[in-house]
Amino acid sequence: MVLAASAADTTRSITFWLLAIISVAAGLGMVLARRAVHCAVLLAVVMLSLAVLYAMLGAPFLAFVQVIVYTGAVLMLFLFVMMIVGISSADSIIETIRGQRMAAALAGIGLLVLLTFIVGHAAIGPGTRTGAAYGSSNINGLATLIFTRYVFPFEITSALLITAALGAMVLAHAERTSAKPTQRRLSRQRVASGRPAPLPGPGTYARHNAVDMPALLPDGSVSRLSVSPVITGLARGAGPGPAVRTEALRAADTASAGTASAGINGTGGGSHDSGPAGADSGDAGSGDADSTPKEAR
């Protein structure tokens, strides 16, 4: 029994120390990382390790809730907003407020010292398992507590959640400045633009089928229309967007600048060869799609 107990203890210790180091490292990384997406991912790491720690502390329900709600919902919400705001908004290293870093470091160290002092001074003995007074399992116990002693805060938090949801809807709502274009108007527009038919979709190949893969025309040339101009950044009068340097598209563009109807009759074999090759380089090109947005922005 002692062995089992010590084995459990050892597992506990190893798990704790491992997770502690990981979570602290991830926390530090989160504060120091330059790109927001990295911060989000590292925060996820922290949350997950915390979930395991909750489990070790005898709070399995909370551990699952942590994973499902916190990491799964809240953190994903962060990532969605990052998508809207723009994943390219990275901080520069230079601190604009004088003395902020120094002061923050000092304050942090001060707080750390203080809290360590407090915690160290407190008499924290070994933990005890929760008794059976609250029911057979953790969930039963929690449920009993929530719906008896903490029912009022529970109701209040529910109201809070409703308010928060409504608030978010109101805040994120975007008013239309002009009337919503009706079907009739849209179709009129389409007919008048000279291209009534829908645009071609992106290319789907054996090894590449992302949205930024251009489709091939019957003569083997790359169809510029198949990739959204937002992605290519090559649309005429294009706004900000990641510029995917698709070699083939570039080539097609320069070639079409010379000959008017290069798109359809085009270069034929040469472009046919360069299609997949272009697609390869395009693939390589899309690899640094993350790095180039900086320049575009």
Binding site: A103, A107, G110, L111, L114, L115
Partner: peptide, 28 residues
Amino acid sequence: QTGFVRSYALSMFVGAVLLLGALLLVRL
């Protein structure tokens, strides 16, 4: 009043630290 949220956050933080320190002094 610099207008920067971060300096205000810093002052709040420092205030909290000082408060904790004061409480500590009193209780110990």
